[in-house]
Write a protein that binds this DNA or RNA. Structure first.
Lengths: 150, 150
DNA sequence: GTCGTCCACGCAAAAATCTTGCGCTTCGGC
DNA sequence: GCCGAAGCGCAAGATTTTTGCGTGGACGAC
């Protein structure tokens, strides 16, 4: 993991749609060298996948942020909760937290009503959820999954 | 925006690395038809960009969730705050919220110390930030930017 | 009904990109 | 100094993307 890797990965996090040649010019490598590095990232699991980013606003959808505190915190309870989050398509993101709350969940739904339904289904009905707080998102100021490569 | 579009976009949100032919098989179109639709998504701004997703854990980085409440809520104050978030590379995501908190910020840093520095720089020093609460992320249960296409 | 237009499709050729074999250089261990 | 491993660029070969073209269905005007 040298400086070339960092620059390349940083570039890929920003825009993975460029050609190998373009990427090569940006970091100072030939297309084939770039390609071999990317293959290595993929093989090592460092580069998980490539995804298309859609404009949520243009689709008329809404986002909600939900903070969740569990009642009991056993390993099994956590596993079950996580599994449910992973299995629900409207759950865009879910993080297990340290601190006052146990989970942060980001929901992407078509409207408010669907959010309420989901809240009911995922949190209200689960008697291991002690309390949860739902906040609608006014505006997605910045989105992305880019990790700091310092 | 028909059913084919929804299935195609859904697929692209999950994995944009497939060939047009593969995508075509999944939704029942030829490669060229798939391509023409994707070109349309791009032109209309619906498809913003394609990005590589890296495994944060494999890079040894940490994630933090920060909830922020502002002191004064004028348009200008919001604009300034948002601009600062957009301009900070370690700010992975930032959402303006309705409810008890004004912003949710996701930070990606190399370590705890850097998070503290950032918190200081971005929130502590800003006298329009009334209060903020930082929570380290134990585990990224689910990540992505996939929007519900109902 | 039927004509004409529009739009999206599939097919296939052309263009572009990705992949891989090869020879070269660099670097570290012995 | 010599050897092997690792990474590079170049260029040929394989694959994918892009585009031109002809076809067929939907729809409105007549």
């Amino acid at each position: 993991m040298d400086d070339l890797d960092r620059r390349l990965l940083d570039q890929l996090q920003r825009d993975a749609g460029q050609t190998l040649h373009e990427l090569g010019e940006l970091v100072g490598l030939s297309a084939s060298a770039v390609q071999r590095r990317i293959t290595r990232y993929r093989a090592s699991g460092l580069l998980t996948r490539e995804i298309a980013v859609l404009d949520a606003a243009k689709l008329g959808g809404m986002l909600f942020v939900v903070l969740v505190a569990l009642e009991r915190e056993s390993h099994e309870h956590h596993r079950r909760f996580a599994e449910r989050m992973r299995g629900t398509p409207e759950v865009q993101q879910c993080y297990e937290l340290a601190g006052r709350w146990d989970y942060l969940v980001v929901l992407s739904t078509s409207d408010m009503a669907r959010c309420r339904e989901l809240g009911d289904e995922l949190f209200q009905r689960d008697d291991n959820v002690q309390r949860y707080e739902t906040m609608p998102v006014f505006d997605a100021v910045k989105t992305g999954l880019a990790v700091s490569l310092s």
